[in-house]
């Protein structure tokens, strides 16, 4: 297998809150993404998936801090880089597509302006050349009247079109890694299908690695190659998409899949997981899922299990498999 494009090793991002509370939002996460691969990071609100993605771009501000871990991009450790050096990587080597395109785009500049700004920031091209490239990109992501769109402001576009514009900006400098943080959550399902198809197409075309952050297991099943399930700031299960949906091992993954209503099968009652996600400053001392787990045992309350392989390419963090 090829060298991983992105390697995240033992990432820890903590937030220091009032009253000496420490929120361990990300607590020892390992990720690797290969070129041309889509890796999904799935979890509910508060699981730490967004903080993970922001940490990879080193976009963590006070009271948050990256406590530990290394982020290696294409064999180079980017953890020690300064803010100035990071600015050269963001948008060039690693790009990001956010959930809400209306807040991610600047409302007072035209789409064309924002595209050209990114292109000119990272590559040495003339204004005319940037203009030509911007129009080409807009056509690529499906704007039929790209020349007109260049002159339009974000509010003149629909939600789906804004997300297309965001994608155009994100891929404008041929990034090697694209982080898509809930890229379709704000969109209707028919538009979601359009955008996910577009992301997939762009991934193949540019041979990017994609880190897809989502809460939607259906999106994971259809668009990812590998998946990591996050709970309480840790990866609790990691395997291929097929394996996860056919043979889920962690009780949390099993619970999530049972609680999902589906179009295919008919159930009387959904298998809900009792309780709720604990806040990141107040995790149970042992396994972080222990309070909600159906199979909880004595030792789950005291020790945090390690993420261990139960077979090749299938890792689970659970005392049941020790």
């Amino acid at each position: 297998m090829s060298e991983p494009l992105l390697q995240v090793k033992n990432l820890k991002t903590y937030f220091y809150l009032e009253g000496k509370k420490v929120a361990k939002a990300v607590d020892g996460v390992d990720i690797h993404v290969h070129p041309g691969e889509t890796v999904a990071l799935v979890g509910e609100s508060g699981s730490g998936k967004s903080v993970t993605s922001l940490s990879i771009l080193k976009l963590i501000n006070k009271p948050g801090k990256i406590e530990d871990g290394r982020i290696i991009l294409n064999g180079t450790d980017i953890t020690p880089l300064s803010e100035k050096q990071m600015a050269k990587i963001r948008g060039k080597e690693i790009s990001m597509v956010f959930q809400e395109p209306m807040t991610a785009l600047n409302p007072v500049f035209t789409i064309g302006n924002q595209l050209k700004e990114t292109i000119r920031k990272h590559t040495r091209v003339s204004k005319a050349e940037a203009e030509r490239k911007a129009i080409e990109l807009l056509k690529l992501v499906g704007f039929p009247r790209a020349e007109d769109t260049m002159k339009e402001y974000p509010h003149q576009l629909s939600g789906g079109m804004r997300q297309r514009a965001m994608i155009a900006i994100a891929i404008s400098c041929d990034p090697k890694l694209l982080i898509a943080d809930e890229p379709t959550t704000a969109l209707d399902v028919t538009i979601q299908a359009q955008i996910l198809e577009l992301l997939n197409e762009m991934k193949d075309k540019l041979n990017m690695g994609v880190l897809l952050i989502t809460h939607d297991l259906g999106v994971v099943a259809e668009y990812a190659d590998r998946v990591m399930v996050m709970y309480g700031g840790q990866i609790v299960e990691e395997t291929t998409v097929k394996n996860l949906f056919l043979h889920p091992k962690h009780p949390y993954t099993q619970g999530l899949l049972d609680s999902l209503p589906s179009l295919e099968k008919e159930v009387d009652r959904l298998g809900a997981i009792s309780g709720m996600v604990p806040p990141a400053y107040d995790f149970p001392s042992g396994c972080r899922f222990s309070d909600r787990c159906r199979h909880v045992m004595e030792k789950c309350r005291t020790e945090i299990p390690d993420l261990k392989p139960i077979q090749t390419g299938h890792n689970v963090r659970c005392c049941l498999y020790e």
């Binding site: 979601q192 099943a221 259809e222 668009y223 999902l260 179009l263 295919e264």
Partner: peptide
């Protein structure tokens, strides 16, 4: 179209 657009967790039958 609406029904076909819903992402499905059925990994065997696409």
């Amino acid at each position: 179209a609406l029904l076909s657009s819903v992402p499905s967790t059925d990994v065997l039958n696409r």
